[in-house]
Design a protein around this nucleic acid. Structure first.
Lengths: 345, 345
DNA sequence: TAGCCTTGCACAAACGTTTTCACAATATGG
DNA sequence: CCATATTGTGAAAACGTTTGTGCAAGGCTA
């Protein structure tokens, strides 16, 4: 119980009166062991409270049963939900998930990849990161470390998963167009990461479909604080002609936009329509509730884990890379109305 | 480069023309090695792209440089922020953080602790969990595994950190009392976990200070979906006399309450005041903005890491257990007004 | 009954490190 | 110049597993 030293398989073997080799085979039910000794060894192990040392096993078996995951910010709810689901699924398969924050810095990503390699992770899930250089990960993958990309550009031979950000933004934009909006402001936190790029492309595609020229003055794409986004929103509203709708890409953009509009007494959707890609509590519960495009974080995490597990189980057969596209859903709420709405006044 | 097999210290030693013992000493700058060989070995290591195998090191050194963290739900933003900060600080010290979700189930907690032990984590940070039995963790701690509690009851000899939930709720309640409220509804997600218990105690203490009797009809404390919370809020409002203020303990409670009030056309703060313990985007940006009690997630995470690191570094000296109480701040916003406010109508 | 196959086990090697010990070579002191 | 520190190095043990190999004992076929 309160025994200082941990029990090793040696202790178990001694207690059962067999060699450590047999003890191991008995516990793992591998190789040829008589049923009698299996029972004897198992009992001894139980009595001693023996737990196999995962480190020693890793060393011997050349597999740590750990997969690493790279993410810009684990406290971002869109990642947190994915991580949660991925961890759950991996755990079922006996794997642990080691998460690292890149803070969207290339240097930190490098550092973490290095760290994960030293720790001998069995696989790597790589989320979007600044300057997603595919080569490094591709090299790792070729070098024998399974790499699964997540919302991230990667080499031709790799497996990965993408949320369909392009279609998400496309549908959101089209919804606004269908309401009659033509000047749609776009607020994005990033135009360099894959999700941001894809979303902007979807926005552009929807406009093009309607033959509306892209107006760069309406697009603001840089990461920034909520306060700055608020002022951006206001500066957009002071354009002439002013935009009649806001498409917010990401939760922080939505928060800033709402704050900015509210500070200036602009009401949604009477003065301006608002739509967001990426659903949050804020969008759901704001008054008025904000229409949003959403996707299932849990299934994203689960699929990521699944992809990784397949790569891990299938051994060397590597097969063809698997790619998954996660669909998105548009949720219509109260924040969108035809332009020039203003019911009374 | 694309070399299949990983380089070991053996390769480095061979390349530098020394024994593996000296290679190790040279790389770690430990023991007596001539400066010349240090340089030679270092160069060889660099050329080969040698990375020491953390697994082998762990086995030999009996330290994995990993700390485990137990949390009910890593996607809960209050935990996510803490985890993020803790991971950052631990990483600076060369430790990795392995997180596990208990889903607030005792069985899962048991399972994870077992898992962490098999993986030979160097330390354990244990967040609140259903039926926080202190004995198990205490035994672990005595058994040589440093355990740091987080918002969790634990044994007398253990170190830990608490957010001052009691005072948070106390101050929130007092603020409402000062405005003249006497019937304050309380919505809490849990009365069993330490934070929930403490908050309810704080609420009760503030009422008692004013000589107001605790009215159990005004208290709803169970974990539940947002929709159910909404209906709870409505049922509370249909009491006669109806509560004039809502104190929401936790973000989901706030969300449900706001939804319920809004569905029934009740306005904040004119019809009812609302106050929340635990600040979120929703509280900040809702119209009206919701007064809240907040605390710094980042410093919580950092302190947790710090406590753990001290335990880890100080070796066997164990010293006296360290305990830290994290203060909270009250943020007054727009959601509270004297009862019977109703400016116009 | 001789030969052979099967079964059950012990022994030892291996995984990649760190570290203790011993030993040679060189430096130091009288 | 001899005795003694000091320094640099290599050999080997150890960490706790898993697994290949060998060997003895017993059961089977012919």
């Amino acid at each position: 119980m309160s025994d200082r030293s941990r029990k090793t398989i040696k202790d178990v073997a001694a207690a059962a009166g067999v060699s450590i080799g047999t003890a191991s085979r008995a516990l793992n039910r591998t190789g040829r062991v008589s049923e009698a000794t299996v029972i004897r060894v198992t009992k001894a192990a139980q009595k001693l409270g023996y737990q196999p040392d995962a480190i020693a096993q890793s060393l011997r078996l050349k597999s740590t049963k750990v997969v690493g995951m790279l993410v810009t910010d684990l406290s971002n709810p869109f990642f947190a939900g994915v991580i949660r689901a991925a961890e759950k699924r991996l755990q079922q398969a006996g794997y642990a998930l080691l998460v690292g924050n890149t803070d969207n810095e290339k240097a930190r990503e490098r550092f973490l990849i290095d760290l994960f390699q030293r720790r001998r992770v069995d696989g790597l899930i790589a989320g979007p990161c600044e300057s997603e250089d595919a080569e490094m990960l591709e090299e790792l993958d070729r070098g024998g470390l399974p790499v699964i990309g997540f919302d991230r550009d990667f080499g031709a031979g790799q497996s990965g998963l993408h949320v369909d950000h392009r279609r998400a933004a496309f549908e959101a934009t089209r919804h606004l167009l269908n309401l009659g909006h033509e000047r749609i402001a776009l607020l994005s936190s990033s135009s360099t990461l894959s999700p941001g790029r894809e979303r902007i492309a979807g926005y552009a595609a929807a406009l093009e479909e309607r033959g509306i020229a892209l107006n760069n003055a309406l697009i603001r794409a840089h990461k920034s604080s909520m306060e700055f986004v608020a002022s951006e929103a206001l500066s957009l509203m002071s354009l002439r002609p002013a935009p009649t709708a806001f498409l917010c890409l990401g939760t922080r953009m939505l928060a800033g936009t709402l704050q900015g509009l509210r500070q200036n007494g602009l009401s949604v959707p009477d003065d301006v329509s608002v739509l967001t890609v990426g659903d949050t509590d804020l969008a759901r519960l704001y008054a008025p509730s904000i229409s949003a495009v959403t996707w299932d974080l849990e299934s994203v995490g689960q699929m990521l884990a699944e992809l990784m597990l397949r790569r891990l189980e299938e051994g060397e057969s590597e097969s063809e890379p698997r790619r998954i596209m996660i669909p998105t859903q548009f949720i219509d709420r109260e924040s969108c109305a035809p332009p020039g709405h203003r019911p009374e006044t």
